Amino acid sequence: MAVVTVAASTLWATLLYLQYNADFGFATQGLIDASIEQIEDGHLDRVLKAWRGLNAPPYENRARYPELAAEATALIRGEKPFTPGTRWDAGPFDRETWAGHWESDTGHWIVVDRSVLSVYGPERMQAVTLSDDFKTLTFHKGGQWRHTLTLIGKSELTHEWFDLTRQQVWRTEPMHKLVRAIEEQVPVAPQDARESKPGP
């Protein structure tokens, strides 16, 4: 009797696993088909927005995936609107996007702290504010300059210097985020041939 119970339990678990895989497969295939179709029709922004929403926390359990995938597919195809304030309203940027070392071709640099919203250059900047869509960061330096940083992508932005005294833009320049190379990307100097030779 115990053997029959174990066998039945194992069979049920296997059927559930196969059903999950089938559901996942159908849901994922629908997402892929809709994404390709809409990208080819010129709706890349809509596709990316739906995928960001699918990837946004809270992360759902496996049983919810087909439902979420079906909703994302409908959004991708334009069959339903994106509702503000939901997981599907996620933008491409967040606070983490800003964290790191940014530098311009002219050598001007700033560092945005990842733990608190602080901006450092040769000195700490003042009155730091971040827009609701996380796209624009503004801060002041002394009483003369207002700096506005606007993201173009996750590693590129435009830096505007505004002269508060003259009430005009003084300069605009691009800046890029410096990316630290991972260990596999660091070139290794060849070992000295003399060191590799066996001793006498």
Rank of each mutant, 00 (worst) to 15 (best):
G78L: 03
L16A: 15
W98S: 01
P200C: 11
D105C: 08
A56D: 08
P66N: 15
A34G: 03
R64D: 03
I39H: 03
W51R: 14
S104D: 04
H101R: 12
K154W: 03
T106D: 12
A70K: 01
W12Q: 02
S155Y: 12
A72P: 00
E184R: 07
H140F: 07
A127C: 10
T158A: 05
T136F: 04
L157C: 00
F139V: 01
E37V: 01
V111W: 13
P198L: 13
Q19H: 04
I182H: 08
R77Q: 07
T158G: 02
R77I: 04
K197C: 11
Q191V: 04
G143E: 15
I36P: 00
T10R: 12
E123S: 15
L54M: 01
M1Y: 15
E71A: 11
P81T: 12
G30L: 10
A193H: 02
L31W: 14
L75V: 01
P81K: 10
V6A: 09
G30W: 11
I32T: 12
K49T: 02
F162Y: 11
E96K: 14
F24T: 00
T136V: 04
I110F: 11
L31H: 06
Y65G: 08
E123T: 13
G199Q: 15
H108Q: 14
T138D: 14
E40T: 05
V186S: 03
I182S: 11
K177T: 05
H147C: 02
A70R: 14
N61W: 14
L157I: 02
W161M: 01
G42K: 10
Q167M: 04
S115R: 10
E173V: 05
H43V: 01
T150W: 07
R171W: 09
E195R: 04
N55Q: 09
F26N: 06
T106V: 03
G78C: 00
G85E: 11
T73K: 01
L149F: 02
V4H: 11
I39S: 00
A13T: 01
G30Q: 06
P187I: 13
V119G: 11
E156N: 07
W170F: 10
L68R: 09
D23N: 12
L151M: 09
S131L: 05
